[in-house]
Amino acid sequence: MNTRVSLSSVLTEVNKAKGLPNAHYIDPNVFVEERDAVLFANWSGIGFGKDIPEAGDAYPIEFLGMPLLMVRDREGQIGVFQNTCRHRGMILVDEPGKIRGAIRCPYHSWCYGLDGTLKAAPHVGGPGQNTHEDMDYANLGLIRIRSYVWRDVIFVNIDGTAPDFEEVHGELMERWQDFDQPMYHGGDGASVHLELASNWKLAVENFCESYHLPWVHPGLNSYSRLEDHYNINELGKYSGQGTYVYRQFEGEAGEKLDDFAGLSEKWTEGAEYIVVYPNTLLGVQRDHGFAFIIDPISHERSNERIELYYAQPPEDTPEHEALRAQNAALWKTVFEEDVFVVEGMQKGRHGIKFDGGRFSPVMDGPTHCFHHWVASQIEKARSAPHAD
């Protein structure tokens, strides 16, 4: 059954456009179409460098049903592989841990290096024969997935067709070049995991805009008001919001978290929150940053994983532990306040007469940019020679 709906009403200017149709939130067939055209065809966030901090660390994940393995090799470089043995398709690593020697398949003990190369295939030529003339080790390494690490987020391009990450996101990287410096995860208290009864895109859309602040985030809005924000509308590239009023926490003696070094004046009281399409949400402030990864589980379920980072390692600044805890508690409250909205929009998408909704031409530019980009990716895939 063909569930495709025309997206022409999305692919127009914000003052005339409608949002993505209901099927893009509640139809499992459309979810599969978006998996291929949007999430597999672009640079999607799947994990964090902090997950594999040391050489030999391996971290298995499942992304849209695909088993992946993030690995840090002996030189400290991060690689991502399909977590599948090239012999009989066995899962290689089923929980995070340290690879002491080689990545060993638990089924027939085929072994792979941290660079994915096949190192050993015991008895492949018969008992006691570990080679065979028809077995080319060089072509039987693990399948490497294109990956790139930026702001500690591990991005992958599953289908291998996207332009290089720096080409796709170079303008955003330049916009935030002040923050192109070391940053350090805040430790155990700096992680937030949320489960959402909603489509992944609704979490992205909610992050895009500040329009909802007065009603959903009254505490945050009390000092970073709606009128203190600006839209970031880079059609076809990225979108989000910024604020001219970022207030640092102060301790009892007036102490503050350390700033990142050499920041321009823009960041003295400013901050920005931008979506790296399709599923990664980033925030930068003078003294800390954060990253969300939205993990699409199904057409009506998704997970959020949020990590907070600072200018100095927590172990070097124990005197700031209380400030980091206060900061993490504030953001956790803000993130949790959004859950009912995201899940409420998901329920609303089952209203069969809903037509995708209209955008405020002034307030909803960032959300429209995201819808327009998603629709563009889908239309591009539909028009490709191999498309049905």
Rank of each mutant, 00 (worst) to 15 (best):
R4G: 14
V5F: 12
V5C: 04
S8G: 13
S9K: 11
V10L: 07
L11H: 13
L11Q: 01
V14T: 14
N15E: 13
K16C: 11
A17C: 08
L20W: 02
N22V: 10
N22E: 03
A23D: 14
A23I: 03
Y25R: 04
D27C: 05
D27N: 11
F31A: 02
E33S: 07
E34W: 06
V38Y: 01
F40D: 15
F40C: 07
G45S: 10
G47R: 13
F48Q: 04
G49S: 08
D51M: 05
A55N: 03
A58Y: 09
P60V: 02
G65P: 03
P67G: 10
L68T: 00
R72K: 10
I78M: 15
V80P: 01
N83R: 06
C85N: 05
R86E: 15
H87E: 03
H87R: 01
H87L: 01
E95W: 02
G97H: 05
I99L: 05
I103C: 13
Y107D: 12
W110E: 11
H132G: 08
H132P: 05
Y137S: 04
Y137L: 13
G141L: 15
R146M: 08
V149Q: 12
W150R: 11
V153T: 10
V156T: 04
V156C: 09
N157A: 06
P163V: 11
D164T: 13
F165V: 03
E167P: 06
H169P: 08
Q177H: 09
D178E: 01
D180W: 00
Q181C: 14
M183G: 11
G186S: 06
S191H: 12
V192T: 11
L194A: 05
N199S: 12
K201F: 15
A203N: 15
V204Q: 07
E205H: 09
N206T: 14
H212C: 04
P214Q: 03
P214F: 00
G219F: 00
N221K: 01
S222H: 02
Y223H: 15
L226D: 00
D228K: 02
Y230Q: 09
N231S: 10
N233G: 08
G236E: 09
K237T: 11
Q241I: 00
Q241T: 06
G242E: 02
G242Y: 04
T243F: 00
Y244K: 10
R247H: 03
Q248P: 06
F249N: 14
G251N: 04
G254M: 05
E255M: 07
L257Y: 08
L257V: 10
W267F: 02
W267M: 03
W267I: 01
T268D: 07
Y277D: 12
Q285G: 05
D287S: 02
A291N: 01
A291D: 03
F292W: 07
I293A: 00
E300R: 15
L308C: 12
A311F: 01
P314E: 12
P318L: 04
H320C: 04
E321K: 01
A322W: 05
Q326R: 11
K332G: 08
T333Q: 11
V334G: 03
E343K: 00
M345C: 06
K347Q: 13
H350D: 05
G351M: 09
I352V: 09
K353M: 12
F359S: 00
V374S: 08
A375M: 01
S376K: 11
S376V: 12
K380A: 11
P385I: 01
D388R: 14
